[in-house]
Structures are given as structure tokens and as C-alpha cells.
Simulated scan of single mutants.
Amino acid sequence: MKKILLTNDDGFDSKGLLVLKEALQDIAQVLVVAPASEKSACGHGLCLTKPLRFIKVDDDFYKLDDGSPTDCIYLALNAIYKDGQKPDLIISGINLGSNMGEDVTYSGTAAGAIEGVIQGIPSIAISQMLKDKNLSNDFDFALAKKVIREIVLKIFDKSFPLGERKFLNINVPQISIKDFKGYKIAQKGYRLYANNAHLNRDPRGNEYYWLGLQPLAWKEREGIISDFSATKQGYVSITPITINMTSYEDMDLVQKWLEC
């Protein structure tokens, strides 16, 4: 039976993770290793300054105290899988909220998939767009479950479509299955950010900042289907992401600049 390793950045008890496990447990042997607490926007970081501990939640289900999604994948592959075994696929999600455009660089969800492909294992990051993530427990994730089952079955039946150090980033719009228009292979869009740092004072008068959520805004590019525009139109966006961030088109330019 195929093996799938799951993680997320919303924490081990997130409904998105639980429905992901539910959607796949009849087609693969599923192991869950997820953060003990929410690690949203933690990026691709490993914990190097304190010990990490597996806590068993259920059979083939662990939370990592107090690890990031990257820690979860790294340690699962090195401590739980034994005798040269490894999963056939790694899936990070289902994230509560989108991961589009430059949000991928902040995303702990994407980081789980990044660690997977660094370790040589086909990986997917999947996110569910939500107008209010605080209402996620009342959301049925029906379309996201349908999408991930279809993608995983296609991978197992055919093959993973990408080469080394590349992963699939999937974003599911907040629509019903009947309004689902299909899949759109889309570029990573240009996310627009504003300053959403709120200055407050604690009861002793000391200043502190609390970072708020950024509105979902992006820059349209003529002739380009981005993950933002695809999901807005009712499609599930699938974006192939490479973790090689070299700007090859600028190498000659920088060489000439250096020599002038």
C-alpha cells in the first residue's frame, strides 16, 4: 500500500488536517506528524535551539512539541520511518486560508512541501481559501477533499509530474462542488501588501505590536493567469513551484554590471 506523510502549519487539531487524513486514509497508509500549536507564517525554519518531542495522539498520528512543519517532516523521515523506508508522497495542509503569490515564502504549509522535496519525496501544499478561518470548524471542505483525492489518485496511477526540488501548490476557492469550474495551471501571482502592524499598550503601559491579517490583494498582469485570478474565477489553481530561486535571466546582467 502507498504511504503518505501529512503535516500542516495550523496545528495537529486543525479541521483542515483532520479532513485531509479522512479523505486519504482509504487509499494509502497515512502517517500524520503535525505541530503541537499553530505555526502559521513560520516559513521554512528548523528548530536548532531547543529539544523537540513526539507526542502520540493516535495510531500513526503524532504532534511535535514544539516543532514547525519543517521540523515535522525532517524528524518524521529520520526518526519514524525505519530501515530505509520513506513515504511515496508528502502533503502539507489543508491550510486554513490561501497561500498564493509571495505568501508562499512566509507559509509554513509550503515549507512542509519544500522540506519534502529537499528530501527527495514528491510533495504537495494544499490550501483552502476562507473568508473567516475562525469559522473553519463549520466548513465542510467538500471541494478540497474531492480535489486532493483526485490529484493523489492521479499521482499513484500515473506519476508525479515534476522533477527534483519542485512541488505542487494547490489553492481551493471557497465555493461548492457544483460551482467548481475545474483546474487551472496558474502562475504564482504578485501579492500586494500593506502595513498592518497595530500598536497597543499592555496594562503596565508598555508598547507592543500585533501583526494583523493582510487583505487579499494582488497585481493583475495582462495575459497571465495567476493563482489569484484563477481562484477568483472559480477554478482550483495548481502552481508548480521550484525552490531554486536563482534568477538565471539576470546572471549575465550582473556579470556585466560587476565588470563595468
Rank of each mutant, 00 (worst) to 15 (best):
K3G: 01
L6D: 07
N8Y: 04
N8D: 15
D9W: 05
V19W: 04
V19M: 08
L20Y: 13
L20F: 13
K21W: 13
K21P: 03
E22N: 15
A23I: 11
L24F: 10
L24G: 05
P35D: 10
P35L: 10
A36C: 08
A41Q: 11
H44T: 02
L46P: 06
P51K: 04
L52P: 10
F54L: 11
D58I: 03
D58F: 06
D59S: 13
D60V: 00
P69N: 01
P69A: 04
L75F: 02
A76M: 03
L77G: 05
A79W: 08
D83Y: 09
K86H: 12
K86G: 02
I91F: 12
S92N: 06
G93T: 01
G93M: 00
G97D: 05
S98A: 12
M100V: 07
G101Y: 02
G101T: 00
G101A: 00
S107T: 12
A111R: 01
E115Q: 09
V117W: 11
G120V: 02
I126R: 03
Q128R: 08
K133E: 02
L135Q: 15
L143A: 06
A144E: 14
K146D: 11
E150M: 08
I151W: 03
V152F: 04
V152M: 04
L153F: 02
I155F: 14
K158I: 05
S159D: 15
F160E: 06
P161E: 12
E164R: 13
N171G: 08
P173E: 10
Q174K: 12
I177N: 04
Q187M: 03
Y190K: 09
H198E: 13
D202Q: 08
L211P: 01
L216F: 03
G223Y: 13
I225L: 14
S226I: 08
A230L: 08
T231Y: 02
T231M: 15
T231W: 05
G234P: 05
G234C: 07
M245P: 00
V254Q: 10
L258M: 15
